[in-house]
Nucleic acid binder design. Structure first.
Lengths: 334, 334
DNA sequence: GTAGAAACTGGGAGCGCTTCCAGCCAGACG
DNA sequence: CGTCTGGCTGGAAGCGCTCCCAGTTTCTAC
């Protein structure tokens, strides 16, 4: 309402009776300013309620003061997935300790993609955390070659980025499959996620690996895209092609839920006739009938570590990639 | 890698053989520049791959080019709630059509609150969408009086903001309760959400209203805080104090799930002995046993409308508050 | 008492862009 | 053919801050 102009450094300097340079120094508490002046400036700052203009500072320092969390995907609804909300929460928790702003770039349309590209090309941000959600994403390549610091969340399938943090999808899948083996199952199927995503591919490999080590057949595979519906379809197909299966490792809880429905409709009991293990440990998993065994990954940590790694990168360090552990949560479906 | 400095307007102007002013005009396609120069500049732009420096522009125009979506809460985990992910998706979908960036401010700590305050006080953003999640939030009052355009998501309990968009919580609660009445229940309890949030209070009022109109007793009330656990506790207490209840309207699905567990443990059948209706229509609601009747609200629309309203505000218009409809989703728990 | 180092200090030149303004020039009109 | 519009033009003044640099002061050590 009251159209009070922003108070500037000059005003602070004048009120404190010092030069603008001196005032600037105390604001950024740089050396070379006497105690007396320092105090005077500090008093002026609080009297006037001075807050530095971030834009001007950004222009002068050639630093933006903001990092972006970018989700690149062909599905406008990706971000509605609670997964990202948790990632964002983790990211925020570490950024909160810094002076950096968090800007959200949901690059799901052409416009969004273009904007993200420009950020990458022309340094509109001090750093980028990129979660690329489809395989042939040109943005991922661009990001890897960009001048601006980029850390990947998850691993693209086409190359391994220099800086990334990922969950141990492969290890988790292996854990889950081994668990199925240990509990006496031998005709173990899998329902995969999108194979053009790193996570989908890694989970599939973990499944293969575990069965190979157990000397079991790993050819009972149905293909899904992480969605509940696709899980149901894949299960139907699996049932038709391999009616003898006695367990299935499903690459996401959503798909597992779809699969369980189909299984029940087909008259199979869970875990009696067929055991099921999912992946992600979403809130829902606890509430299915029976409660779903699944592998859980530390999603907020993922966000936190991405942010930390980016900070390190911005500070000029060369952090090493990080793979976060996953663990098996045994419930009643297996 | 290749440390290529950013291309500036001057370079564009030089290459096009025009003054910087002229170049600037064509970039912002302002009038007063001949077709010939316009073309020359455009060619130079694409030759050089020029992208305006947002910071410099912001400093010159005194506009930030960014709006913030702020969640003010005392709970660091709020944003992990899928609710906000959906709001953000909605917001993003309309912002994507503009040149504005979306910055996320999760003000859950003192630091975060302070930063949000500064944004509000010193115009560090062109506008703010504020979702304040607790009653006595000083930020809300500050926001209402701020110079920067603010639209509220949801209504604070202490005052009615000039600009807000909210879901019809009261109407939804009334709908749910009336539904319970219509299906023959007469000893209808409620489990409330946090009463220091607008939504919690409004849903409680809706419950009271419906019962008042039906001439029924509205004094069977248990108090929760929207969490599953609190729903369980409230149900236990309700059962102890009003063992005769035959229905309960629960102010959130999470709480309803907790309540259902308690009910089952107490040997009551659902909906036989007691009918239940929740609120929010989270993904989980579809998968409870039995599937939960609930009232659904258009969360993405909420985000979209907040963004639209903010845009209108920034454009100097005076939009009117908006209340989005909620609707009853009947499933098997009632 | 003095040379030299060390610590302060403020002026001023930018950072890249917008925008006001005064000067131009061409066309319209009488 | 002279005067008036009115749309181009480019120079220059900022937007608010940082930071280099040269000049000044204060100390320390001879």
């Amino acid at each position: 309402m009251t159209l009070k102009r922003q108070v500037t450094l000059d005003e602070v300097a004048e009120r404190a009776g010092v030069s603008r340079s001196a005032a600037s120094r105390v604001i950024n508490n740089a050396p070379h300013v006497s105690k007396a002046k320092r105090d005077a400036v500090q008093r002026a700052v609080s009297d006037l309620g001075y807050v530095p203009n971030a834009t001007a500072r950004a222009l002068a320092t050639q630093q933006v003061g903001a990092v972006v969390l970018a989700i690149s995907s062909d599905n406008p609804q990706v971000f509605a997935d609670p997964f990202f909300a948790e990632v964002a929460t983790g990211v925020n928790s570490v950024l909160e300790e810094t002076e950096l702003e968090l800007v959200l770039q949901l690059a799901t349309t052409t416009r969004g993609q273009t904007r993200l590209e420009q950020v990458l090309r022309t340094r509109q941000a001090d750093g980028v955390m990129l979660m690329s959600m489809h395989g042939d994403d040109p943005i991922a390549q661009l990001a890897e070659e960009s001048d601006v610091p980029v850390v990947f969340g998850g691993t693209p399938i086409s190359f391994e980025p220099r800086y990334y943090v990922d969950a141990d999808n492969r290890g988790g899948a292996r854990l889950a499959t081994e668990h199925l083996v240990e509990t006496g199952r031998s005709r173990i199927a899998t329902i995969t996620g999108r194979m053009d995503e790193g996570a989908g591919m890694a989970r599939y490999k973990g499944y293969q690996e575990a069965l190979a080590m157990a000397g079991l057949d790993a050819r009972r595979v149905g293909y899904g895209d992480f969605s509940e519906e696709s899980g149901g379809r894949a299960m139907e197909q699996l049932l038709a092609e391999h009616p003898d299966l006695d367990a299935v490792f499903v690459a996401s809880d959503q798909m597992a839920i779809g699969a369980m429905r189909v299984l029940k409709d087909a008259g199979r009991t869970i875990p009696g006739d067929v055991a099921i293990v999912g992946f992600n440990d979403v809130a829902l998993a606890r509430h299915t009938e029976p409660p779903l065994s699944t592998v859980s990954q530390p999603i907020q940590s993922l966000g936190r570590e991405m942010a930390r790694m980016l900070l390190a990168l911005i500070a000029g360090e060369s952090p090493t990639p990080l793979i976060l552990p996953t663990r098996l949560v045994k419930r009643q479906s297996s």
